[in-house]
Computed example of a mutant assay.
Amino acid sequence: MYDLRHTCLTNWLNDGVPPAQVTDWAANGVPVLLSTYARCIVGQLDDLKTRIEAAGDCAIWDMVTSETRSSATISVA
């Protein structure tokens, strides 16, 4: 039964159902849902980038992603 629930929640998230709605249906909190299922969400990045570009937020996107990349860089001495 739990595997069926996991599959259903993962499919809803992958289909673009907002996490807040999925938590209402699943009786979970958003932090619990995302800590469990965030790694299962796939295939939405291109759509999200397109929506960001259409909204004109490209400069903010570039700034945020470049800061993320630079903070994730590990230098080896």
Rank of each mutant, 00 (worst) to 15 (best):
68 T>G: 11
59 A>P: 02
56 G>C: 05
26 A>Q: 03
29 G>H: 06
61 W>C: 07
49 K>T: 08
1 M>F: 15
73 T>F: 11
5 R>E: 08
53 E>G: 10
25 W>D: 02
51 R>C: 06
7 T>Y: 12
11 N>L: 13
37 Y>P: 03
14 N>G: 05
30 V>F: 10
15 D>M: 03
45 L>C: 01
55 A>M: 05
76 V>Y: 09
34 L>W: 06
65 T>M: 14
21 Q>T: 12
65 T>F: 11
52 I>P: 01
61 W>T: 04
36 T>G: 10
71 S>I: 04
77 A>C: 09
1 M>R: 15
75 S>H: 10
7 T>A: 09
36 T>D: 14
26 A>W: 02
12 W>S: 00
17 V>K: 08
54 A>G: 04
6 H>Y: 06
70 S>W: 03
73 T>L: 07
17 V>H: 06
57 D>T: 11
24 D>L: 10
39 R>F: 04
8 C>F: 07
3 D>W: 03
64 V>F: 09
58 C>H: 01
60 I>M: 03
7 T>Q: 14
73 T>W: 05
35 S>K: 15
3 D>I: 08
34 L>H: 03
38 A>H: 04
61 W>L: 13
37 Y>E: 06
43 G>S: 03
58 C>N: 04
24 D>N: 08
24 D>P: 01
22 V>L: 03
12 W>L: 10
24 D>Q: 10
7 T>H: 06
26 A>G: 04
42 V>M: 07
9 L>K: 01
61 W>M: 10
44 Q>T: 00
60 I>G: 00
77 A>I: 07
4 L>T: 07
72 A>E: 09
42 V>E: 15
12 W>Q: 03
51 R>H: 14
14 N>D: 01
7 T>W: 12
16 G>R: 02
20 A>Y: 14
58 C>P: 00
37 Y>K: 12
41 I>L: 08
37 Y>L: 11
24 D>A: 06
65 T>G: 02
12 W>N: 00
35 S>V: 11
63 M>N: 11
55 A>E: 08
74 I>F: 07
4 L>C: 04
13 L>Q: 02
46 D>Q: 06
30 V>Q: 15
7 T>P: 00
57 D>Q: 14
25 W>Q: 02
35 S>N: 15
35 S>W: 11
70 S>K: 09
58 C>E: 13
56 G>V: 05
28 N>G: 00
60 I>D: 02
41 I>P: 06
27 A>G: 10
29 G>M: 07
12 W>K: 02
44 Q>L: 09
40 C>A: 14
8 C>D: 10
47 D>W: 00
65 T>K: 12
37 Y>A: 09
19 P>M: 12
19 P>S: 13
10 T>W: 00
46 D>K: 05
74 I>G: 01
42 V>R: 15
57 D>E: 13
38 A>D: 13
51 R>Y: 09
54 A>N: 12
5 R>M: 07
60 I>C: 04
27 A>F: 07
67 E>I: 12
2 Y>I: 12
16 G>M: 05
65 T>P: 01
31 P>A: 13
76 V>H: 13
28 N>S: 06
60 I>S: 01
67 E>Q: 10
73 T>P: 01
56 G>P: 01
52 I>Y: 06
